[in-house]
């Protein structure tokens, strides 16, 4: 079929619907990557139909396969049932909880730097592209998934929100942040540069910082820290009891023995120690005093120099990074 050179996938679908098959079902609205309606798969990749230019594909002589997004039931053609998706978004309470009912007399000013902390997560248009190829959700449909978790950080990281610990406790439950298998499909697919996997890591960092670290995922992560401080390298054999606890580890004895016969359970003694490991220990101590803890450790690498706390209780710590007026937020993709 013929389409103009500037046509995107959505334009082509409109032409098909107009001229060939009026029954073709797909969602659309804004046509400019804002509304998040037209998520679908092209050659197995979740995309926004309004973002994908068709000319390079035609020029390459390729005939793309268009299908519905994954991990959501198909209602008709390219339309999926997004009700489970919305249910998970709702479960993170996607509204501000400022910790007071009455609005204060004085307006509370939130600085650009404070908003930079959640800049990427606030770009989410809830199109579902990240969820479409999420490997953990494919294995466990109850997994909250990248969109809801990124939305979760959008509020945990919001300087005005006062329900961090309550939110983190919810997000640390079964099917929450520690179910993410780090396949990075969400970062790869997001058409807006939200990088949901990074948002999940920020939630992990905030959880550990705020002492919400009872989950096996958090214990697993903390053992890596302990290992680098003591021997430098992962203390692999102790990872199972440190993550799952002694009782669970004992239940795994049969499996461990089978692995041990193949040399897959390296003896913890003598430990495999890196030279100058005291430097790693000193580094951890040093950075621990510098105020870039929690999610900020990731945010700073994204050029967004902001702070998560702003309340008087939490206090602006002395060693928190210098705020530079006029620092641009990181550029959004797309």
């Amino acid at each position: 079929m013929d389409a103009p050179e500037w046509a995107c996938l959505l334009d082509v679908l409109d032409l098909i619907k107009d001229k060939h098959d009026g029954t073709l079902a797909y969602r659309k609205s804004c046509r400019m990557m804002i509304c998040g309606s037209c998520g679908m798969r092209m050659d197995g990749r979740a995309v926004l139909a309004c973002k994908e230019r068709m000319k390079p594909i035609v020029d390459a002589g390729h005939v793309p396969v268009i299908s519905a997004m994954g991990n959501m039931p198909v209602l008709k053609d390219l339309v999926v049932d997004m009700s489970p998706f919305w249910g998970k978004i709702r479960s993170v309470k996607p509204w501000l909880d400022p910790g007071y009912d009455e609005v204060a007399e004085k307006e509370r000013i939130v600085s650009q730097q404070q908003m930079n902390v959640i800049h990427k997560e606030a770009l989410c248009i809830m199109c579902g592209c990240c969820v479409s190829e999420c490997n953990s959700m494919e294995a466990d449909p109850d997994f909250m998934g990248p969109a809801a978790l990124a939305k979760g950080f959008r509020f945990v990281g919001d300087a005005r929100d006062q329900a961090d610990v309550e939110r983190l406790n919810t997000l640390n439950e079964e099917h929450g942040i520690w179910d993410c298998t780090r396949c990075y499909f969400c970062n790869e697919r997001c058409p807006k540069g939200v990088d949901p996997r990074d948002a999940i890591a920020k939630l992990g960092a905030e959880s550990v910082k705020q002492g919400v670290d009872h989950d096996m995922g958090a214990k697993h992560a903390k053992w890596f820290i302990r290992s680098t401080e003591t021997t430098g390298w992962l203390r692999e054999t102790e990872l199972v009891p440190k993550t799952q606890g002694i009782i669970e580890a004992i239940k795994q004895t049969g499996f461990a023995l089978k692995l041990a016969r193949k040399g897959k359970v390296p003896p913890p003694f003598p430990p495999h120690v890196a030279a100058d490991v005291k430097e790693a220990r000193a580094l951890r101590e040093l950075v621990g005093e510098q105020g870039r803890d929690g999610a900020l450790g990731i945010v700073q690498g994204e050029h967004a120099l902001g702070r998560i706390e702003f309340t008087e209780e939490a206090g602006a710590r002395e060693n928190a990074p210098e705020i530079q007026p006029g620092v641009e937020p990181p550029p959004a993709e797309g």
Binding site: V208, R284, V287
Partner: peptide
């Protein structure tokens, strides 16, 4: 030392960066 295997990035990202 160990690179942190994504775990330190998720628990103490500033330490991960320095490591």
């Amino acid at each position: 030392t160990c690179c942190g295997a994504g775990d330190i990035h998720e628990a103490e990202p500033d330490y991960y960066l320095h490591l």
